[in-house]
Simulated assay, not measured.
Amino acid sequence: MSINVVEKIDDLVKVKSVLVSVSDKSGLDKFIPRLVEINPEIKILSTGGTYGKIKEILGKAADTCLTQVSDYTGQPETQGGLVKTLDFKIYLGLLTETYNDSHQSDIERTQAVPIDMVVVNLYPFKETISKSDVTVEQARGNIDIGGPCMIRASAKNFLRVAPVVDPSDYEMIISEIKANNGMTSLDLRFRLAQKAFDHTAVYDRAIADFLKQQAFSDVSGCYKK
């Protein structure tokens, strides 16, 4: 297998397109309007409850900048939100490299959009399993799939994409973007990538530890009628 080696990147990348899908919606009421203020032409992709929250926050301004992921991909969310963001156009937008001609050709062919920032945090698995009466099935239902995939893809491509996983970083990120005329720096993207991979590592460790502690009889008993 040949490995793509990147030899040219941009230090500063303008935040034109943002994908937002969060379990913890704290801080969005300040973060999203300030992103729009910095770049009034910004495009925001979002899903489910996050889309509804951003629409509420932005009011009429949402009409020009906010799009549901399902409308962008042409694939409706599955029942219960089981599949929302696992789509070729999403991951092409996350992983594409600016100076890769093949990637740019794929972008043009699919009419995808390069995504410059991903704002994602995960289903509350730790909070769920901390309950004394939690069942294996309840825990299983709170294992996030699309979220970690988006975080990993954006963090891998920190050369161009800013992965944002912690609401406490919103103020710092806005400050740096504003100082750079609406752009993220490579230094910021790299720092966010470090935090993003740590975020998914801790999440996966919690899942693995929980499952390891369960007796198979308890697991199988959840599904027997």
Rank of each mutant, 00 (worst) to 15 (best):
M1I: 08
M1G: 15
N4F: 13
V5K: 09
V5C: 11
V6E: 15
K8E: 14
K8Q: 15
I9A: 05
I9K: 07
D10R: 12
V15L: 06
K16S: 14
V18I: 09
V18W: 03
V18F: 04
V20T: 10
S21N: 10
S23F: 14
S23Q: 06
D24M: 09
S26N: 14
L28C: 15
L28S: 03
D29W: 06
K30C: 03
I32P: 10
I32C: 06
I32N: 07
V36N: 13
E37I: 02
I38S: 10
N39E: 12
N39W: 06
E41N: 14
I44W: 10
I44E: 13
L45A: 12
T47D: 00
G48D: 03
G48F: 05
G48S: 13
G49S: 05
G52H: 09
G52Q: 15
K53Y: 08
I54H: 02
K55A: 04
K55R: 14
K55V: 07
E56D: 01
I57P: 06
L58D: 11
L58W: 06
L58E: 13
K60C: 06
A61W: 01
A62K: 12
Q68C: 06
Q68M: 04
V69T: 07
V69G: 02
T73D: 00
G74L: 03
G74H: 05
Q75M: 14
P76K: 05
P76T: 09
E77Y: 03
T78V: 03
Q79S: 12
G80I: 09
G81V: 01
L82K: 15
V83D: 08
V83W: 03
T85L: 03
D87A: 03
D87W: 07
K89N: 00
Y91P: 01
Y91D: 05
L92A: 03
L92G: 00
L94K: 10
L94R: 00
L95G: 06
T96V: 15
E97L: 10
T98E: 14
T98K: 15
N100M: 00
N100A: 01
N100R: 01
S102I: 13
S102K: 14
H103E: 12
H103A: 04
S105K: 11
I107S: 00
E108F: 07
E108R: 07
R109V: 05
V113M: 12
P114K: 10
P114Q: 11
I115N: 05
D116H: 10
D116E: 07
M117W: 01
V118G: 04
V118I: 13
N121P: 08
N121W: 14
I129P: 01
S130H: 09
K131R: 13
K131I: 07
S132V: 02
S132M: 12
S132I: 09
S132F: 06
S132T: 10
D133L: 08
V134W: 13
T135H: 01
T135V: 10
E137H: 08
E137N: 12
E137W: 04
A139R: 00
R140K: 09
R140I: 14
G141H: 15
I145R: 01
I145T: 02
